[in-house]
Design a protein around this nucleic acid. Structure first.
Length: 228
DNA sequence: ACCTGATCATAG
DNA sequence: CTATGATCAGGT
């Protein structure tokens, strides 16, 4: 029988990764944290990435801040996603930081967004704040790649947003732009600034931005999986 | 009730 | 600062 313990090595293939992820389904974050020897914070207010780190540990992902996929050898990215009791996402999903300069000639095919989303292991986790963190249960894993339709949706939003950035209109972009992919601040606070292109082509300082998947997109891909 | 803009911790 | 991991919380 497989031992229920964190993987100390990266998984060898997708099947092994999925098998390990499957063992976690139904367990609580409290159980997984205790078995991994990880302290459980009272809530996520000051530990927003805690669930993601915990699952990385259990699945043998490279911890830390490397700008790579979580399972580089497999080309797989790990995403935990908080869900309500009906399996619908409670939050948008951060994809990557948006490049605000040096974008002449960039195309969808080689974009960071496309690369990050090429193959994703989604792990739904109960996320309602009424449920104590330690009692929240891990759901069934979903190894996903964008369908042709999903990629077309992503590409359209990405191209629209990148056009605005390149044309110096980043500060006119709001989270309402994009049907499935949105651009929002991704920073420590509202004082953190980075360089971007202004309306007259001049350098400006603005908030760092990130690409996020809207809930309608992740909700649909989860529903497709768990209803079929 | 929900979404958008703001925010939190850590490593390098 | 940028990268990783995301959720918070007030205004609409």
């Amino acid at each position: 029988m497989l031992s229920l313990s964190p993987l100390r090595q990266p998984p060898e293939d997708e099947a092994q990764l999925l098998a390990q992820a499957g063992l976690l389904a139904g367990m609580t974050l409290g159980e997984l944290a205790a078995l991994a020897g990880l302290p459980i914070p009272p809530d996520l207010k000051r530990d927003k990435g805690w669930t993601g780190i915990l699952l990385e540990l259990w699945l043998g992902a490279s911890a830390g801040s490397k700008p790579e996929q979580d399972f580089a050898a497999l080309g797989v990215e790990l995403k935990t996603i908080p869900i309500d009791r009906q399996g619908r996402p409670l939050e948008t999903t951060f994809v990557c930081v948006a490049p605000l300069t040096g974008n002449s000639g960039v195309v969808w095919e080689t974009s960071h967004v496309r690369h990050k989303l090429k193959r994703v292991l989604w792990i739904p986790v109960e996320g309602e704040r009424a449920i104590p963190l330690a009692e929240r249960r891990v759901g069934s894993p979903l190894l996903w790649s964008p369908s042709a339709h999903e990629e077309a949706q992503l590409r359209q939003d990405w191209e629209e947003l990148m056009d605005l950035i390149v044309l110096g209109h980043v500060e006119r972009i709001t989270a309402r732009h994009g049907e499935v992919l949105q651009l929002r601040p991704k920073a420590a606070n509202s004082k953190a600034l980075t360089e971007a292109i202004g309306a007259n082509g001049e350098p400006i300082l603005t908030l760092p931005r990130g690409f996020y998947l809207k809930k309608n997109f992740t909700g649909a891909l989860l529903a497709r999986h768990f209803l079929l």
